[in-house]
């Protein structure tokens, strides 16, 4: 079962046309605020594998689960910022049992199928790292 907030986001996106979806995602990306190195260390443990936008994940306890803090250091990484916002808003504090079952395929529900291989790798890497961090309670690169 997907976390309820994530399910709601995916349902919102499912009714949008491509242009509307892109504008929605850009708005989320522009809402994103980066984390400092004190909040999210820029080290190999926290780095999301396969993500060219240089994305790092830091976690801390929150609610029934974890706060997922994605640091995106590429100012042009608007897709990574949008996904970071979605994952933080919809998964932080949610039950670990639910977050640990999410599939990286949700990036296609969010961004559509027109993703290049490289872009797909990076974004799915963010989802996978969030999922695996929920499984093990700490940032864990797959």
């Amino acid at each position: 079962m997907k976390p309820a907030k994530l399910q709601a986001v995916l349902e919102d996106l499912s009714v949008l046309e491509r242009t509307e979806r892109i504008e929605y995602l850009i708005a989320l990306g522009e809402e994103y605020r980066n984390f400092s190195p004190e909040e999210v260390p820029r080290d190999a443990t926290c780095r999301v594998p396969g993500c060219e936008s240089e994305v790092y994940l830091g976690v801390s306890p929150l609610g029934e689960g974890l706060r997922l803090k994605f640091a995106v250091d590429n100012p042009q990484g608007i897709s990574a910022m949008a996904l970071a916002t979605i994952l933080d808003n919809s998964l932080s504090g949610e039950p670990l049992s639910q977050v640990s079952e999410i599939s990286e395929d949700l990036i296609y529900d969010i961004f559509g199928r027109d993703l290049s291989m490289g872009k797909s790798m990076g974004l799915s890497g963010m989802v996978r790292m969030a999922r695996d961090s929920a499984r093990y309670g700490k940032p864990l690169a797959s």
């Binding site: 850009i26 608007i78 961004f111 559509g112 027109d114």
Partner: peptide, 22 residues
């Protein structure tokens, strides 16, 4: 672009987008 969001987020004035897939 590779990133489908970038053109919509902002592009050079008078630039059109050609998407490699569509």
């Amino acid at each position: 672009n590779e990133d489908p969001l970038l053109y919509v987020q902002g592009h050079i004035r008078n630039a059109v987008e050609i998407d490699w897939v569509r």
